[in-house]
Design a protein around this nucleic acid. Sequence first.
DNA 1: CGCGCGCTTGACTAACTTCAAAGATGGTGG
DNA 2: CCACCATCTTTGAAGTTAGTCAAGCGCGCG
Lengths: 217, 217
Amino acid sequence: MRDVALPCDLRSEEETRAFLQQQAGCLVAAPDKVISRGASAERRCFRVTDGVVRLVRYYADGRRQVTRFAFPGEFFGLSRAERELASEAVSPTTLLEFDLGRLQKLSDCNPYLARQLAGALRAAVDQATEHIVLMGWKDPRQRLAAFLRMLHGRLGLGDVVPIPMARIDIADYIGLTAETVSRAFAELRRRSIVEDIDRQLLRLDVSELGRLIEDEL
Amino acid sequence: MRDVALPCDLRSEEETRAFLQQQAGCLVAAPDKVISRGASAERRCFRVTDGVVRLVRYYADGRRQVTRFAFPGEFFGLSRAERELASEAVSPTTLLEFDLGRLQKLSDCNPYLARQLAGALRAAVDQATEHIVLMGWKDPRQRLAAFLRMLHGRLGLGDVVPIPMARIDIADYIGLTAETVSRAFAELRRRSIVEDIDRQLLRLDVSELGRLIEDEL
DNA sequence: CGCGCGCTTGACTAACTTCAAAGATGGTGG
DNA sequence: CCACCATCTTTGAAGTTAGTCAAGCGCGCG
């Protein structure tokens, strides 16, 4: 396949975006399907079009740590450490797949793309920093509340939030067991801070959620 | 002060680096001195020239989480979440201070700078990801071992590693108390995996360290 | 030389994990 | 369409382990 335009000639974000799509392979992944096993030899990065992806580190004893959830519009695999993580679909997912080397070359001569990738990296740092701060809270309820607030910021509409991932994914993200997460949910429900609309849909009392997180209760 | 050259005209990394130095303010910070209090209004980012800086989130109950240690050559404050963290000198530190807006403008038209900043962001994502993986280990000895391995990778010379930060900083980084960290150190010493050369200097059995981390012992 | 602060060690407590089982949920095939 | 089964979630009880409180030690600084 021949490039229809030299990347350096692209003059706008729209043209760059369109060009980028040509450079990408499109993937579809059903829930729990592995997108990348994670290896230092991995030469691809991805952009989530639709759905949610989890980045996971498996430990020798079978436990695991979810290091990140990637939501629509987000890139993952731009940094070495992320490429060494396994990536798995949480919900039915579609993604674009890019060759790292090519992306690097393109961004070197196309400032629009370079800016977009820098933005994606900043977002990754932001998410990771938030995640670390979340794990600083020792009370399970606070951790869960911080997680729900994060999710609300990403996926929420009004006071309603979809919860696309299973309890065990949440547990492995916030550093607790599924049982402890379940108990924390129970107490948040008891306090009317969260209300079940559906299995995968919650209504949140956002202000009360924030109070719970900060005020150590 | 007048710019001697337009940033877009800079033709090499050396020229860019030299130009960048002119754009920076130089700071010196004694141990425990606050570099930035951390606020969403913060408009600066920093590059550590010498020493070590900790990025810290303080919680309402007085506890804190160290989200990152920044070592010589590294930038911090490039992403929003990092600018909202307090930054404090761990050891005697010198830094360069940059105006974010100006840096952004410069990088928009100077590919060398853009690449350097992208590299700094990738490094930040790598560190944060490593940090989250570290906190996934539940055994204090494994967490400490993973921390020491990280430090060895950054500051180590042969099998010797300087430990510039206090126990409490380590504890707040890996999510444990200072007492637990002290006990974990005791056991690593007992097993001859670490040996004290000096108060701030350790000799590590790196391979044994790796085995301890992965093999769950 | 003496004080202060950080580090270490000990005993006890509290809370999360573990182990176990029952309850809900969703998908599938008869 | 409904019953069944596998899986996920919730709930309960017991056990471990890191946190807490407290005291002793050692190094560095004034």
